[in-house]
Design a binder for these strands. Structure first.
Length: 575
RNA sequence: UGGGGCGUCGUCAAGCGGUAAGACACAGGAUUUUGAUUCCUGCAUUCGGAGGUUCGAAUCCUCCCGCCCCAGCCA
């Protein structure tokens, strides 16, 4: 379904044109450059799909490169999770993983080159002073008193910075550009700072670390990146990106192109807010199935194909937008409908006794209509399709018996005409089994319906009526003997508000109190006993579900609802 | 009020001077042992606004309006 017919976008147009004109010797290389300081979310998926996607499409390559220049925030565990997420999404970064930290030596040399050209200087202004000297959005900045320091002195100071002779914060290395530039990024930006701190990969080799702007462009150039795709907020940095690459002797000059990041409604995407949800236990951890993190949606049951397709469908532009999660869910359903085997599960069981079904120990056990009746326990095996539209997915046996369960919602004592399900005196089909008719309703002392007494029609075995009579409704069901108990997590959107962060006060006020409903008394087909975590099943008439990768076991099955089926009845019913 | 961006259907989004693609949503209808799927049909005389250029403008020009980003020794 996906892969074919990928949509065009302005970035692909640029690449096509560059390739046609023979730019970059006909090569095209992109990169996905995460900072390992947090977990990936669906917004990153857009960038991943874009960068790896165009590389695939144009027969180029895409490097996975960690932008690990700030040891204060970064950690190996993030590196590991990012690698696993990108792999799960289905992308291949070739033989090696790149790290900006692998370039620390060369980066240092490039800084020295800049100093020698008189294009960088060591500055001793404090952070606060530097802010004052920087000016404001409307007023130009002032030159640092250290701006005209001699090259020799700069060289000496910078080397001593590297050697660890100074305290953190005493000196920085700055590019010498233009303190009166209307673009604040060009007002002598810091390119190196002292941080006496161990780095996840280079350990204690360095106590000075390069800044993003300095590192990123050079890393791109060293890797021969041709198109450096990043989000809109870096547009103002492009002049600096270009300045740096022009001033330093790198092998090539990549082109930075910016696009709008993805926003989804009914959720939050910022690292800080996701962190708050986790820390304040509003959710169950970084992989909570309600979170838009890759780990979360994966645990929820989303498929990589659905996410890739979604990223293709939403397109790439420079317009800031908030995409309807409905679009995502639709891509999910499209994929799941194709691949998920169908099974039956009853989430809110209502007991049904088939009164004319032979009792285990009664004498009518030899009734000939019940072809595969097991005389020992009074059950019958029936055959069900694993996917009605795909016979190649095979069939499976399901067990029918005297005691079965249907969904509470599928029975109504005083049912309106449009209600196609079970009601006193009405007949429905049990999927792949028999027609049953409701003869009696048993209630407890509070008036709650606790059991239905029904009769079945032996002639309708498999679900077809030989006399051609029609029933409007087909219900899913499960039998006492053919099912096992399970817990089911019903997930819904995490927030009630389309834009949870619209008001500047506490966004957690918009949390949906019903984003998780844990159902304990569910019953699922025995077939599900060996369900693999994350593998999608369609619980017929309910939605798509998967066994939870953390909590489900053969002793205690736990399923997550990935997404519901489209439900036009619910919509009509609401009106 | 400095600089950089962006404004095409409810939501995304093509379009690049020749007379508004597509997807989702929505509304009808058909088929259906999932009120699912699938399948038809409809859905912007109009492109933030106002002028101008042109035989012809969403596309070019001018002005205006609205929204976003930038003053980390974060990325």
């Amino acid at each position: 379904m996906e892969e074919e017919n990928r949509k065009n976008n302005f970035i692909k147009n640029i690449i096509t044109e560059d390739l046609e004109q023979g730019k970059n010797n006909g090569k095209m290389i992109t990169r996905f450059p995460p900072e390992p300081n947090g977990f990936l979310h669906i917004g990153h998926a857009k960038s991943i799909c874009l960068n790896f996607g165009v590389a695939q499409e144009f027969k180029g390559k895409c490097n996975l490169r960690f932008d690990d220049t700030n040891p204060a925030k970064e950690d190996q565990k993030y590196i590991d999770s990012i690698i696993s997420d990108v792999k799960w999404l289905g992308f291949d970064w070739g033989e090696k993983i790149y790290y900006a930290s692998d370039y620390f030596d060369r980066l240092y040399e490039f800084a020295v080159e800049l100093i020698k050209k008189g294009k960088a200087y060591v500055c001793s202004l404090t952070a606060e002073e530097m802010r004052e000297y920087r000016g404001t959005l409307t007023e130009p900045g002032k030159n640092s008193p250290d701006r005209e320091r001699s090259i020799a002195e700069n060289l000496d100071l910078f080397e001593r910075m590297k050697n660890g002779e100074f305290e953190d914060g005493t000196y920085v290395l700055r590019a010498k550009i233009d303190m009166s530039s209307p673009n604040i990024n060009m007002r002598d930006p810091v390119i190196y700072r002292i941080k006496t701190m161990s780095h996840p990969r280079t350990k204690d080799a360095w106590c000075i670390y390069p800044m993003y702007d300095f590192t990123h462009g050079i890393s791109d150039a060293l890797e021969g990146v041709t198109h450096s795709l990043c989000t809109l907020e870096f547009q103002d940095h492009r002049p600096l990106y270009d300045w740096l690459l022009d001033e330093v002797s790198v092998p090539c000059h990549p082109q930075q192109i910016e696009f709008a990041r993805m926003n989804l409604n009914y959720t939050v995407m910022s690292k800080r807010k996701l962190q708050k949800l986790v820390e304040n236990n509003h959710v169950d951890g970084w992989d909570d199935p309600r979170l838009p993190t890759i780990a979360g949606i994966r645990r929820r049951g989303y498929t990589p194909a659905a996410i890739r397709n979604f990223c293709n469908i939403i397109g790439v532009s420079k317009k800031e937008s908030r995409i309807d999660v409905g679009l995502l869910e639709n891509c999910l359903r499209e994929d799941l409908n194709d691949i998920a085997p169908r099974v039956m599960a009853v989430l809110d069981p209502l007991k049904v006794t088939i009164e004319n079904w032979p009792d285990k120990d009664s004498s009518n056990m030899n009734r000939q209509n019940i072809e595969n009746l097991h005389p020992q326990d009074g059950t019958e095996e029936l055959e069900a399709l694993n996917h009605p539209q795909k016979p190649e997915m095979g069939t499976r046996k399901i067990t029918f018996s005297k005691t079965i369960y249907i969904e509470q919602d599928d029975f109504m004592e005083n049912a309106p005409k449009k209600f196609f399900r079970l009601a006193p005196g009405r007949e429905v089909r049990l999927r792949y089994a028999y027609f049953i008719k409701c003869e009696d309703v048993i209630k407890d002392k509070d008036g709650k319906v606790v059991e239905l007494i029904c009769t079945y029609d032996p002639a309708t075995r498999g679900g077809d009526a030989p006399d051609g009579r029609k029933v409007k409704g087909t219900l899913h069901w499960v039998s006492q003997e053919g099912s096992v108990p399970a817990t089911v997590n019903l997930y819904d959107r995490l927030f009630l508000a389309e834009d949870p962060e619209a008001e500047n006060d506490d966004f957690t006020k918009n949390l949906n109190p019903e984003s998780l409903i844990k159902l304990e008394g569910c019953r699922v087909e025995k077939y599900l006993l060996n369900a693999q975590p994350e593998k999608a099943y369609q619980f017929e008439r309910l939605g798509y579900f998967c066994a939870d990768s953390k909590e489900s076991s053969e002793d205690h099955l736990v399923f997550n609802r990935t997404v519901t089926l489209r439900d036009t009845w619910a919509k009509v019913n609401k009106q």
